[in-house]
Computed example of a mutant assay.
Amino acid sequence: MEIVVDSPTSPAVRQLLEDHLRDMFATSPPESVHALPPEKLADPHVTFFSVRDEGVVVGCGAMSELSPAHGELKSMRLIESARGKGYASALLTHLITVARERGYERVSLETGAEDFFAPARRLYERHGFTVTGPFAEYTDDPNSVYYTLAL
């Protein structure tokens, strides 16, 4: 397995992100979907990573810089066949390491409150993230859960 900086608009990644967006809109009301399309993940303030196994993209995640002291995790996703095999923990650990290397004091994220997102919430909590209130441009939303990890 390798985790590399990648382009969210590359053909190898695009389908994964389109599947992610489709699931988000199928699970949450449109106003509660905060996943970004590939073009927005290509913003200079966002670093996009893919997880590859023998050259095949099995997952992705991104780090957005909210300020010099605060990063946000975006678009963590694995293909279904890669779930439960440690890729998500490896990716999350990598993203936390990147945040520390950048000198962030904290890293935050938004995920869904629906049962569909329970495995993601458990992953974040296992890695030390705690539930917090909205941050950055987010607002109170019963369909969202906000997490922060102090670094």
Rank of each mutant, 00 (worst) to 15 (best):
T47M: 06
E110Q: 03
P11T: 08
D115Y: 09
V98N: 06
D115H: 11
P134S: 06
P8E: 04
R22K: 14
A12I: 04
C60M: 12
D53M: 14
P38I: 11
D43N: 15
E72C: 02
G55V: 01
R100H: 09
R52T: 05
D115P: 15
S7H: 08
L16Q: 00
M1D: 02
L149F: 06
S32L: 07
S144G: 07
M63Q: 12
D140W: 12
R122Y: 07
S50D: 10
V13S: 05
M1R: 11
M76Y: 02
L21K: 04
G86R: 09
V51C: 13
I3E: 00
V145H: 14
K74W: 09
V57E: 07
R122C: 03
P142F: 10
P30G: 04
S67K: 02
E39H: 14
V57H: 07
M1G: 00
V46M: 11
L17T: 10
L66W: 04
E54F: 11
E2W: 07
L109I: 01
R122K: 15
S89D: 07
V131I: 15
N143G: 00
S144T: 01
G103M: 12
F129S: 01
A90H: 02
T97W: 08
A150M: 06
H34K: 13
E105Y: 01
P134K: 09
S81D: 14
D140R: 12
Y147L: 09
M1Q: 07
P119N: 02
P8K: 07
G84S: 05
L95C: 01
L151E: 02
T148D: 12
E31N: 13
R122F: 12
G86L: 04
E114V: 11
G59I: 03
R106C: 03
H45Y: 13
E65N: 08
D43H: 13
L149V: 00
V56A: 15
G59P: 05
V56T: 12
T111G: 10
T47S: 12
G128C: 02
A90G: 08
Y124W: 03
S28N: 15
E54L: 14
E101L: 11
F48L: 09
L17K: 04
R126M: 12
R14C: 03
P30K: 05
D140L: 14
P142Q: 08
K40S: 15
L66M: 10
G133M: 10
K74F: 07
A62K: 04
E125Q: 13
G103P: 05
S89I: 09
P8Q: 03
P142H: 11
R126I: 09
R52D: 00
E54D: 15
T97L: 14
L78A: 02
L109A: 02
H20S: 11
L36M: 13
L78C: 08
S32K: 01
D19M: 08
H34E: 12
L16N: 05
H127I: 08
E31A: 13
A26K: 04
G55D: 01
S64Y: 10
Y138R: 06
H127A: 06
H127Q: 05
L123R: 04
T148F: 10
L123C: 02
P119G: 03
S89A: 10
R126H: 09
L92S: 04
E54V: 11
R100T: 08
M24T: 07
A62D: 08
T111F: 10
